[in-house]
Structure formats: structure tokens, C-alpha cells
Design a protein around this nucleic acid. Structure first.
Length: 260
DNA sequence: ATGGCAAATTGAATTTGA
């Protein structure tokens, strides 16, 4: 099974980009985050015509929104309202015997202090709930993907020292994400494939004059697999060139090929 | 350690992203 995860930053604005970049890759499943549209406006016909007729989505106006788009039938799907909100940050689907979780973890605002910044508290609570959930429900034949908005390792950011107090790379976030992987029973498939030293990014800010030459990236997007899937990881790709497309998303697609 | 940007909404300015 071949699966991609991509924070698309508006699926309606970039539906042509998605189809252009991903058609021809032989993808079975495409997981999108930040679709930024209500379900009634999701471009389902365009995906169906391109060969992905099965869609499980959860969107709202303006913000957030996730979708699992599949060539293969979706046998069941569900979602959870994490931290008691209905803000469309999670959907899961069962496809070809695998349970696929697609997450958009809160960005967390600017100030890394939950007493000053409720958004940071929301992010930490979200991670705590995810951890408790997967401890109580250990994943099996499962894949977890998404924009988790945390770059946990030194080699996940352009400067660990300069980003140590910047939301996405603070100690508490890094600890919570690594604990979620460990205690939650997940394998970081990207790091399993590339090792912990190689510098890897999945996001580059829109604000850089030249994203490529400044190259101040962060690995905020992730693909994890349950332990029973570890030996099936056949290939991992981070599609960096997509950041250089016309009207790009600030995130690039991550692709995993899992042997069946 | 940001920030030079971007998208969606509501109506040129605001919110959010990270």
C-alpha cells in the first residue's frame, strides 16, 4: 500500500496542484490536513475522476479540516473530538486491513507558556489525550500520519539552539511527542528509514525570501506505523521539490510504501 | 528568535498559521 500525507493549506485553492503532483505516483491513499472547507464544498468529483473515489472527511469553514482519500474502499471510518472540541483535527479509516489515523495537531500559538497562551495549553492537552488513547488502545495494523506541529529531534530543525524556545521545538513538546511514540506503541517510520542524524524537513515558512537558499525548515509532518508494520516499511520519500511549485503549500508531501 | 507571507472570512482589516 502506498500512502501520502500532505498539509495542503486549502484543498480548494490547491486541488489542481494536488492532482498534478500526486497523479502518476500510484498512490492508494492520500491524507490531507488543513483542507479549510466544509464537507459540502470539498472537491470530491475531482478526486473521484482522478482515481480516488472513496473519501472520509471532516471539515469546517476556514480552519483545520482533514480528509482520507482512497483508491481502495474504506470499510469503516470514525473520528474523535479531542480536548472536547469539534474542530476537525482527526479522522480515521480502515483500508485494506490497515487502520489509518490522520491528525492535525494544534499549532500552539506563539508563546510557549500555557498560563499566558491557552493555545499552547490546548496543544499539550491534545498530546496528552492522544497518548492516553493509544496506551488504552494499542495500535495494530495501523498507520498514523499528519501535521503534528512538532519537530522532536535536533535533526528535525535548521537550528535546535535557535528554536529551543520556539513553539514546535520546545523541550516539553519534544518530550511529549517522543513519549507518545514510545508509550503509544508507534514507530517513527521516517526516522526508522533515514536514521536519527540525517537532516529532514517537511515545512518551510512562507516568509523566507527564498525557502531553498535560506533552508530554515522543520520536520512537522510525520508518518508512524504500529510495531507489527515496522518490517513492512519498503520506502519513504519526502517530496521536497513540491515546495518549489507554483503557489505551493508551506508543507510538502510525505510518502510511505508498505509491503502487503 | 523571528518573519520578509499566505489563506479565509468579511468587506480593508482581522485571524490563524508555526
Amino acid at each position: 500500500m502506498k500512502l501520502a500525507s500532505w498539509n495542503i493549506n486549502s484543498v480548494r485553492l490547491r486541488q489542481t496542484l494536488v492532482l498534478d503532483r500526486l497523479e502518476g505516483l500510484g498512490l492508494d491513499v492520500l491524507c490531507l490536513q488543513e483542507t479549510k472547507t466544509e464537507d459540502q464544498f470539498f472537491p470530491v468529483d475531482a478526486f473521484a475522476e482522478a482515481g480516488w473515489p472513496h473519501i472520509a472527511m471532516r471539515g469546517e469553514k476556514s480552519y483545520n479540516g482533514v480528509a482520507i482519500i482512497s483508491r481502495l474502499p474504506i470499510t469503516e471510518n470514525s473520528y474523535q473530538n479531542w480536548t472536547g472540541r469539534t474542530d476537525c483535527r482527526h479522522i480515521s479509516a480502515r483500508i485494506n486491513g490497515q487502520t489509518i489515523h490522520n491528525f492535525y495537531v494544534p499549532a500552539g500559538g506563539d508563546e510557549p507558556d500555557r498560563t499566558l497562551n491557552p493555545k499552547f495549553g490546548h496543544k499539550l492537552d491534545f498530546l496528552d489525550e492522544m497518548t492516553a488513547h493509544f496506551i488504552a488502545n494499542p495500535p495494530q495494523s495501523s498507520i498514523l500520519v499528519g501535521d503534528l506541529n512538532i519537530a522532536p529531534l535536533e535533526a528535525d530543525v535548521w537550528s535546535s539552539r535557535q528554536l529551543r524556545n520556539v513553539v514546535s521545538h520546545t523541550d516539553i513538546e519534544r518530550e511529549k511527542l517522543l513519549n507518545l511514540i514510545e508509550a503509544g506503541g508507534w514507530i517513527d517510520a521516517v526516522r526508522h528509514h533515514y536514521g536519527t542524524e540525517e537532516i529532514l524537513y517537511s515545512w518551510w515558512s512562507y516568509r523566507a525570501r527564498d525557502w531553498q537558499s535560506s533552508n530554515r525548515g522543520r520536520r512537522l509532518d510525520h508518518i508512524w506505523v504500529s510495531a507489527d508494520n515496522q518490517e513492512k516499511i519498503a520506502k519513504i520519500d519526502i517530496d521536497t521539490p513540491t515546495r518549489g511549485a507554483e503557489k505551493p503549500s508551506d508543507h510538502v508531501p510525505l510518502i510511505i510504501e508498505l509491503a502487503s
